[in-house]
């Protein structure tokens, strides 16, 4: 039990720590890893809470007064057993809803590209006839940069090239997989406070990572900031991994404050250590969870549940 308490405290500290740190100026690759790890830890913590509710709570006899209620009971379980299973059902429902949402979004993007593509654009991109300003990555297995006619009309040459390199950065750095993992983790961890903020920070870190990629291709920060602001203004509902995504004002401010001549700052040693430590914690928690659940089931059966339904009890 002491081990579980220590593990819980460690998990809570690791989940809360990124929110307490100022990561805006830290290298975006590290911050992406930290926020994704934090989201995965939130998901694992939520699963842990759901397992604890199903395994440990019946032992406490919390719903003892209703324990003998066997109406409509399945096998030898009481109706109150189903109550203890509600958190797990809520997590499963949230995950299924999120998977469905991702599937629908992917189908909508495929449909948009199929219905509105008019041909090849600059730098191997696909031009969409849409007048809204959109530069984005479409597709998970075979990602492609799509650029709307609105973007080709509104952006000047330097802005367009910077925007396209930003999107190529998303593809080269494989951000789509991190985004999907983050979205699924957000769905499972959504009942913990701060999960939406963590998901937003992950998107921000990924956008900043792609910004760094574009700047490494010798684009001026002010030009990229201008393209980002135009894209954010032009897109009413910007999809994920689009030029105007993330927290635009923060991204633009960081770009405009950056000295284009200066070398990128060396990350703080603590930060360098934190990213892998968080990743190790994620793996450790994921491996420990089934064992903790298994031990809990043994404990439950050793102590016995307060009530068990028999066929004759069922209404």
């Amino acid at each position: 039990m002491t081990f579980l308490v220590v593990a819980g405290v460690l998990l809570a500290a690791a989940i809360a720590l990124p929110h307490a740190l100022k990561l805006d100026r830290a290298p975006a690759g590290f911050t992406s890893a930290i926020w994704l790890s934090a989201l995965l830890l939130r998901a694992l913590a939520s699963v842990g809470v759901a397992v604890a509710a199903e395994v440990y709570l019946p032992i406490t006899g919390l719903l003892e007064p209703f324990g003998a209620w066997c109406a409509g009971a399945l096998s030898s379980h009481t109706v109150t057993d189903a109550v203890f299973g509600l958190p797990a059902l809520a997590l499963a429902g949230s995950l299924l809803f999120s998977v469905g949402g991702l599937f629908v979004a992917a189908r909508r993007v495929r449909g948009l590209v199929r219905d509105t593509a008019i041909g090849a654009g600059p730098g191997g991109s696909i031009v969409l006839s849409d007048g809204a300003l959109l530069v984005a990555v479409a597709g998970l297995r075979r990602p492609q940069v799509v650029v709307s006619a609105g973007a080709l009309v509104e952006l000047d040459e330097a802005e367009l090239r910077a925007g396209l390199d930003h999107e190529r950065g998303h593809i080269a750095l494989r951000h789509r997989y991190l985004l999907v993992a983050g979205e699924l983790a957000r769905a499972v961890g959504r009942f913990l406070p701060g999960t939406s903020a963590a998901a937003r920070e992950l998107t921000f870190a990924l956008e900043r990572h792609a910004d760094s990629y574009a700047l490494s291709r010798r684009h001026e920060p002010a030009v990229l900031a201008s393209a980002i602001c135009k894209a954010a203004r032009g897109a009413f509902a910007a999809p994920a991994l689009s030029l105007g995504g993330g927290v635009v004002t923060r991204r633009a401010r960081l770009l405009l404050e950056a000295d284009p001549e200066a070398k990128p700052p060396r990350p703080h040693p603590g930060l360098v250590a934190l990213a892998p430590a968080m990743a190790v914690l994620v793996v450790g928690a994921a491996l420990a969870l089934p064992f903790a659940a298994h031990a809990g089931y043994h404990e439950k059966h050793r102590l016995g549940t307060p009530h068990t339904c028999h066929a004759s009890d069922a209404a």
């Binding site: 008019i118 041909g119 090849a120 600059p122 031009v127 969409l128 006839s129 007048g131 080709l152 367009l160």
Partner: peptide
Amino acid sequence: RGLLERKREGRGFVYRPQVTEAEYLSG
């Protein structure tokens, strides 16, 4: 950029939009 089609006609070029105004606006 792929928004106009360019065809030589006589001594000069004629430009034609690849996307109609209706498509551009309706999207």
